[in-house]
């Protein structure tokens, strides 16, 4: 008998994406370039985060025709984003047969109080987090994968580093606590007690944790891997750079050989211009994407 849609079946795909690079693409041609470069999956988008940031307005789920065109173009898994709390956009993506749904702060939130109840779906979800409490709330709602939020569309790794270190530091702190201290910590984190307790015992999250938000170079990808990310998402960093195919390949190689400095040097040579970065301290507070979601 086939059993579909369980959390274990969903996290199974997260496990298979480990050690790889998931790339944002806005056309079928870009999807093909990403696949040829060795991407483990593509994220189908109407605009990359850097353009969403530049153009402003309400950013929504990509139209079905774009997602179908990208699905047709590649054999690797295809992901797509929905607005935080927009469970009907998620129903559309599930019906299309998308492989992974990103409930993403890159799009304009549809609900400022609730995230999607992800157990209602057979399709796995990935959600962003800045800290352990946020990761465990999303996992409590049924997320099969979490990722750092970073600060999307900036080409600046500083926020992704902050979020990855924060989650890992908080996991280590939990491990040092007595059982009678865990309830208090669960309250402080605003996270389900059972999950806090599980993490304290196991010393890791119950689902894989990837890096996202600001990765622009092979060294950025390797930095996140060495800090404990199990794979990386690259958004604007590839198709906003001078030579997308070459940079995409380089980031794939760097993610596999993330501890081998000699290989990292080799793949970092002659890549052309990286995307132009943004200092996150210069972004107005109300335009910080990482602050979307709760």
């Amino acid at each position: 008998m086939k059993i579909t849609g369980t959390l274990e079946v969903k996290t199974g795909l997260s496990e298979m994406l480990k050690g790889g690079v998931i790339m944002d693409v806005v056309t079928a041609d870009q999807a093909k370039i990403a696949e040829d470069a060795g991407a483990t999956a593509v994220m189908a988008l109407e605009r990359v985060p850097a353009d969403i940031r530049a153009h402003g307005g309400v950013a929504r789920m990509s139209p079905p025709e774009l997602i179908y065109a990208i699905k047709e173009a590649v054999t690797i898994p295809v992901m797509a984003k929905v607005r935080i709390g927009h469970f009907v956009e998620a129903q559309l993506l599930e019906s299309i047969g998308i492989d992974f749904i990103d409930e993403s702060e890159v799009l304009t939130p549809a609900d400022e109080h609730h995230h999607i109840w992800k157990y209602d779906f057979k399709t796995p979800f990935v959600c962003g987090c800045k800290n352990l409490g946020e990761a465990l709330r999303r996992i409590g709602e049924g997320a099969a994968l979490v990722r750092t939020k970073g600060e999307p569309g900036t080409g600046n790794i500083v926020e992704a580093v902050r979020h990855m270190r924060q989650v890992n530091r908080e996991i280590k702190m939990l491990q040092s606590l007595r059982n009678d201290e865990l309830m208090t910590v669960a309250k402080e984190h605003g996270a389900p007690f059972e999950l806090v307790s599980w993490v304290a015992k196991q010393g890791k999250l119950p689902v894989p944790n990837f890096a996202a938000g600001g990765i622009a170079t092979p060294a950025d990808a390797a930095l996140m891997m060495q800090l404990g990310a199990e794979a990386v998402f690259v958004g604007s960093g590839i198709f906003k750079s001078g030579d997308a195919a070459r940079r995409a390949q380089a980031i794939v190689k760097a993610t596999t050989h993330y501890t081998d400095a000699a290989i990292l040097v080799e793949v970092s040579r002659d890549l052309g211009e990286p995307m132009v970065g943004i200092d996150v301290h210069e972004i107005p507070q109300n335009e910080i994407m990482a602050d979307r979601g709760w």
Binding site: M1, K2, T4, K10, T75, P77, F100
Partner: peptide
């Protein structure tokens, strides 16, 4: 044959 059962929605557990 790759991807013989469809997209992730069709992934499954079995004994």
């Amino acid at each position: 044959e790759r991807n013989a059962y469809g997209s992730q929605r069709e992934s499954f557990y079995a004994e």
